[in-house]
Design a protein around this nucleic acid. Structure first.
Length: 262
DNA sequence: GGCATTTGACCTAT
DNA sequence: ATAGGTCAAATGCC
């Protein structure tokens, strides 16, 4: 398992390197270099995927539960299974994003994900320099929307937030329209788009589908209201699909890999 | 006045 | 017993 995690880390490193070079190139990246970098990263992820599949075909293989494997790319190192040093397992149906702090406005503010949230608590977390903030959907009282999220700065990288979503929005403030209006040729990248987003999850558990989650796809675009950036959501998502979900996933674990090109 | 945030207390899972 | 999660009163802002 350690070897596989190292492979994933290596792949994340390649993706991170690509991300940095894209930002430095200010849109004038060499196509050949881009192709080579994408291929390298894809190959690295494919190797890790193959190893994971092999591992999962073993009867004794331990498969992480929903939301229990969170990979940080662009904010290494990788962390699995728990939040910080907590021994408590995460509840099922949670999803965690690693999101950079806003580059515009107050960097202390949590990233805007398009929904309106009301803070209902804050808690100091063991072995973490920063408290964890608890939010629920503003429309909870109106629509009974059960969506919640937790926001916490990473202990080793204060410029990055770990955002954990719970529940799904039943209110009307769906971000879907924003998703449908990807801004091509805007005035700059979104300030809150995840640099890199990996989700690893099990398929629907018996007796309950893992609910569709707007934030999953929304994270591809970041905060659409701020516009801008040459998002390559569809193509990259398709690439990720080809990389990870081609054919049987032998065990049903889905991996969603997204990236941004600014 | 209405709404959001803060914060200490309380509840619950491990 | 301890830490994470939630509640609710107090407070602040518009």
């Amino acid at each position: 398992m350690d070897r596989i995690l190292n492979q994933i880390l290596d792949a994340c490193g390649l993706a991170d390197e690509l991300d940095r070079s894209l930002r430095n190139s200010a849109g004038a990246a060499d196509l050949g270099y881009l192709l080579a970098s994408c291929e390298d990263a894809a190959a690295a992820f494919q190797r890790a995927t193959a190893e994971l599949r092999d591992l999962m075909t073993e009867p004794s293989a331990a498969v992480p539960a929903v939301g229990e494997l969170a990979l940080e790319c662009g904010a290494l190192p990788l962390r699995t299974g728990d939040a910080g040093s907590s021994s408590r397992k995460r509840k099922e149906g949670t999803r965690t994003l690693i999101v950079p702090a806003t580059r515009t406005g107050n960097p202390d503010n949590p990233p805007d994900d398009g929904y309106t949230w009301r803070k209902y608590g804050q808690k100091d977390i063991l072995n973490s320099r920063f408290p964890r903030s608890y939010y629920r959907c503003t429309h909870k009282s109106f629509h009974g929307c059960p969506a919640k999220k937790q926001v916490q700065r990473l202990h080793n990288d204060p410029s990055v937030f770990e955002v954990t979503y719970r529940g799904t929005h039943t209110c009307q403030s769906s971000p879907t329209p924003l998703l449908m209006t990807a801004d091509i040729g805007g005035d700059g990248p979104s300030a809150t788009a995840p640099l890199l987003h990996l989700e690893v999850m099990q398929p629907a558990v018996a007796g309950g589908q893992v609910p569709d989650w707007p934030g999953r796809t929304r994270s591809l675009l970041g905060d659409g209201r701020q516009g801008g950036g040459r998002d390559t959501d569809v193509s990259v998502a398709e690439l990720a699909d080809a990389m990870f979900n081609s054919g049987s996933s032998s065990g049903g674990m889905d991996v969603i890999f997204t990236a941004r090109l600014n």
